[in-house]
Simulated assay, not measured.
Amino acid sequence: MRTEPKAGRWDWLFARLDREPERPTHIDVPRMTRHRAALFGATLAFYLAIVWLVVTTSWLVRLDWQVMFFRPYQQWSQIHWFVDYYVVLGQRGPTAVMVAAWLGWRSWRQHTLRPLLTLGASLLLLNVTVGAAKLGMGRLGPHYATVIGSNEMGLGGDIFPSGHTANAVVTWGILAYLASTPRARRWLSALSAVTALGVGMSTVYLGTHWLSDVLLGWAAGLLILLALPWFEPLIARAEAWILDLRDRRRAGRAAPAAAPAPAAPVTAPVLLKRRPTAVQDGATAARETAASARHPRAPAHLAPGPHTTRSERTPITPSGTRRPPHTERLPRGTATPAARPLTNGG
């Protein structure tokens, strides 16, 4: 018996991925070149410099306090409503959904899972690195500052670096990283840079972050984008593993189901032979007693059996004659009566 495989929930997506070619030939996977490695080193140095300037309560911390006392949200209150909406472009939830929808369509068109897997890897790196830095430095924000002129470090806060800024750099920058042509990569790089810059300055305008928080957030997001080529082999192995797992599940569903072996016929003599002797004798005696208690009745069809010879059969002698009685016929040995005279002259 053969069963047809049922269509699973993701079979329509994997069927699309099975189409050739697996990946367009004109799209190159970025590699860690010397230029990119130099940018990564410079950005890392800038990151460490910002941290050092804040920890030592340098001129950067005094600049943070000056911007905070300036209160931009009061100086330009007429744009407050716009900034409230614009800063959403740096929130992780809404931006991740929008970018994932676009990259999902790209995966559909390019027949590969690489765009979605790259987005997942970048967001994972963002959560690990930025989250660890926030918890490790524990800086308080402008609204919760305790001592004027202090760096507010190690007081249990979680705003250094700015998560909105780093998320805007990574989420919108991943579109430029995955661009299929150099021209699209340049335009998307400029657009993502402007968007991330606007999100960072919006947090400063609203007073939720220090200026140094935004600077460190830009550096943290850029470090993740520059480090992504090192994770490309891992992304390729993850894609191959997912497709291989799909193939194994599909092969398991398409395998013919093994038909159950028919049970061997069990007859009454086999069961009687397997019974103990005492149980068999008791059952036989009970059947014979029940048969003798019933009124004997000839079966409708007799099975052929042994016959006795004619000489062994009991002769049956009929009593009397077999001829029907006749009033005018006399028994043998009697005289014949005289003929009856005819009347009327006959």
Rank of each mutant, 00 (worst) to 15 (best):
G345S: 11
R34G: 11
A257S: 07
G345N: 12
L155D: 05
T56F: 05
R71T: 10
F160Q: 01
V97Y: 14
V29R: 08
P161F: 07
T95H: 04
T284H: 09
R23V: 15
F160K: 00
A15N: 15
T3S: 01
R322H: 12
V147R: 12
R340I: 12
G120T: 05
G221K: 01
L234M: 14
H326M: 08
A132L: 14
P318R: 10
R323L: 07
H143S: 08
R2K: 11
E328D: 13
G138V: 07
L60K: 00
L13K: 02
S58R: 05
G163K: 03
A254N: 13
V214H: 00
I316Y: 01
A96M: 12
A42H: 00
A168Y: 13
R9A: 12
H301S: 03
S202A: 14
A121E: 04
I242Y: 09
P256S: 08
Y144C: 01
L135A: 12
V55S: 02
A121V: 10
V266G: 00
A259T: 13
G252L: 11
P262M: 06
H326S: 10
E22N: 03
V270Y: 00
G217R: 09
V61R: 08
H295N: 06
G333S: 09
T95V: 15
T308V: 04
V194T: 09
G173K: 07
G93T: 14
L126R: 00
V97Q: 02
F69E: 15
P269V: 02
V97N: 03
I174T: 14
R62H: 15
L135G: 12
V54W: 07
S311M: 02
M153Y: 00
R114P: 00
Y47M: 06
Q75E: 07
F82M: 10
A168N: 05
A37F: 06
T284A: 15
I27H: 06
I79L: 08
G221P: 00
R246H: 15
L228G: 06
M68S: 09
V55W: 04
A291M: 11
A293M: 13
A298D: 06
L125D: 05
H80S: 08
L215A: 13
L113V: 03
G141I: 04
H209T: 09
R323C: 02
L140E: 07
L272K: 01
T308F: 04
H26R: 11
T203I: 07
A251F: 04
D247K: 15
A166I: 07
A251V: 08
T129D: 00
H80T: 10
G157Q: 03
T181D: 09
A300F: 08
I148L: 15
L124D: 03
A45V: 15
L13M: 13
A132C: 07
T195D: 08
